[in-house]
Amino acid sequence: MPDPNRTPNKTPRRSLPEPTPETRHFWAGAKAGELKLQRCDACKKAYFPPRPFCPACGSRDVSVFTASGRASLHSYVINHRPAPGFEGHYAIAVVELEEGPRMMTNIVECPQTPEALLLDMPLEVVFAEQDDEISLPLFRPLGTDSLQKNGDAS
């Protein structure tokens, strides 16, 4: 017997991040539609995930900056098992940002197949709103927007 008090067909949500003081700027940036990285003022190296010091040289003199949002597909798997908040087969990917650091993400606006997901393909960031606090940085093939517009026009 289904529980009458439960919302029917309520989609389970994907696991969401809980920002810490060291990462709050990243998630605030994502909420505002900007991909925030950090750069060491001493050795100039860009890094990710966020922390208040440089992992290359240990300096505490670091700055937050907005990344270009461009990346390339570094590696991935296509999960075939069920997962909360996901439907069908989906790629769990790692992208290499133009500035150097890599991050895990999902690839959207693209078939989730080995034929469509080619390593080193150019990508750009999009932000997927999850709730009032969290938007997740996801990536889509670069130029997806303009291609769609062209498609619409024809």
Partner: peptide, 10 residues
């Protein structure tokens, strides 16, 4: 939890 789990690893 912040930088991998949201992307659906099982």
């Amino acid at each position: 939890g912040q930088f991998e789990m949201p992307y659906g690893p099982v």
